[in-house]
């Protein structure tokens, strides 16, 4: 990995909720085209870290450099930054008052100030990509979980972000729907989209990502290529964690 195409550089990131220290000292970099998988036990701070990167949580220490600019600075225009670093949630968070198409157009029109026609074209293009273009007139409540998540991905893509963050995008789905979402994510990874994915899908982390980060107790305990982490983990904690997923 070279240093010139670093998009995100996270240094000494800390986060506590009152006296509860959740992130202790997080350091890593994300380069253009990286697909970073973040794995670790429940409660290890994976979501909190992702939410800090998206500024949905305010870090209590350290820095997050986005193209060299520290976005933890209170003067940074957080909404403008978020338009570039999108996020896909476990619970989809589609806008319930809008149709599928409107969901994918709202950000383009309100935030990116595109024309309606332009926004619609782009929305259709990405909905087609995730295989949801037939459902443009549906409301979120009329869709299955897998369909909702694919729309949520299209909504995020329609903003043409530089990095897309995924927080356990398949954890709220019935097993038979996990595949359709992972398929979309795999295609995006192959196309070179920069992604940070918190996941419990070890097969995805192993086969698709370029870099794997194992977190425990608010720290990065081990990181490396999927081959390293899954093939020859060094830390006892990593081994112990991975042994729970023997069947992947």
């Amino acid at each position: 990995m070279s240093t010139e195409n670093v998009i995100l550089e996270i240094s000494h990131l800390e986060k506590n909720f009152g006296s509860h220290v959740v992130l202790k000292d997080i350091n890593f970099q994300v380069h253009t085209g990286d697909v970073v998988s973040i794995i670790g036990a429940s409660g290890s701070g994976k979501s909190t870290m992702l939410r800090c990167i998206n500024l949905l949580e305010t870090p209590t220490g350290g820095s997050i450099l986005y193209h060299g600019e520290d976005i933890t600075n209170p003067r940074v225009d957080a909404p403008a930054y978020r338009a570039k670093v999108g996020m896909v949630f476990q619970n989809f968070n589609l806008f319930n008052n809008m149709t599928v198409l409107e969901n994918c157009m709202a950000g383009q029109i309100k935030v990116a100030k595109k024309s309606k026609a332009e926004a619609k074209e782009k929305a259709l293009q990405f909905l087609q990509k995730v295989g949801m273009s037939a459902y443009i007139n549906a409301k979120p409540r009329q869709l299955s979980g897998g369909q909702k998540q694919r729309v949520a991905i299209a909504r995020a893509l329609a903003m043409e972000p530089e990095v897309l963050l995924f927080d356990e995008p398949t954890s709220a789905l019935d097993p038979q729907m996990v595949g359709e979402v992972l398929e979309v994510m795999t295609a995006l990874a192959k196309e070179g989209l920069t992604m940070i994915v918190v996941t419990h899908e070890m097969a995805f982390a192993r086969d698709i990502s370029s870099h794997v980060i194992f977190m425990a107790d608010g720290l990065i305990k081990e990181e490396g290529s999927p081959k390293q982490i899954f093939g020859e983990p060094k830390e006892a904690e990593t081994k112990e964690f991975l042994s729970r997923f023997r069947n992947v």
Partner: peptide, 30 residues
């Protein structure tokens, strides 16, 4: 209104005001 709606709006770059006008208030009104 589910707090996730506000987060979803913020995640695509909406400001608090934009999220309120386009996402939260229409649902609150209903």
């Amino acid at each position: 209104v589910d707090p996730g709606q506000m987060e979803g709006a913020k995640a695509i770059g909406m400001t608090h005001v934009q999220a309120m006008m386009n996402v939260i208030l229409p649902q609150a009104f209903r």
